[in-house]
């Protein structure tokens, strides 16, 4: 057993605490047929609810709906705001992601996205110190219905260390 020597990495990470829990408008977008088609091609999606108009018209939704994963591809005007200004010598990776779906997203819907930083915490694992940032983005349609929420966790970790 060896004890890891203290290093620069021992320095506490810093971030802007006032950004936690604050809802920030991160933009709105329309769900278009072109986007649905481009998405379906990218992930080889053949589900007729998303790809076949005649089939979709006879489905419970009555029209083509967007695959839930498509929300991930929509640009948010301010990226991953609110910005936390995390200062930690590291590279950022996607650690995990969850999605809740509350209702269908239809072609032509106008979706508003709101984001908040839910929590930020530090963990020490096999590969060293890591800082996790968890954000939650809620998606609201033109009828004020929350149709989905995505929570994702990014890990800031040092590269090249064990």
């Amino acid at each position: 057993m060896t004890v890891e020597p203290a290093s620069e990495a021992e320095a506490a990470f810093e971030y802007d605490e006032s950004a936690i829990g604050v809802d920030v408008d991160v933009g709105s977008f329309e769900i278009t047929r072109e986007q649905i088609e481009a998405y379906c091609e990218a992930v080889d999606e053949t589900n007729p609810l998303y790809t076949d108009e005649a089939y979709a018209q006879n489905s419970p939704h009555g029209t083509i709906i967007a695959p839930p994963g498509m929300l991930h591809t929509m640009p948010l005007s301010q990226g991953l705001d609110p910005k936390l200004q995390v200062h930690f010598k590291s590279t950022s990776f996607h650690a995990g992601q969850g999605m809740e779906i509350f209702g269908p997203i239809r072609e032509g819907d106008s979706i508003q996205a709101r984001s908040q930083v839910k929590e930020i915490y530090e963990k020490t694992g096999r590969t060293g110190r890591m800082v996790f940032v968890v954000r939650r983005i809620s998606y609201v349609n033109q009828d004020d219905a929350v149709v989905a929420a995505i929570e994702h966790s990014f890990v800031n970790r040092e590269m090249g260390t064990r």
Partner: peptide
């Protein structure tokens, strides 16, 4: 991208 891998796994379920 992680979200794309997740979308591929989501497709399995849908």
């Amino acid at each position: 991208p992680g979200a794309m891998s997740m979308a591929i796994l989501t497709k399995l379920v849908t």
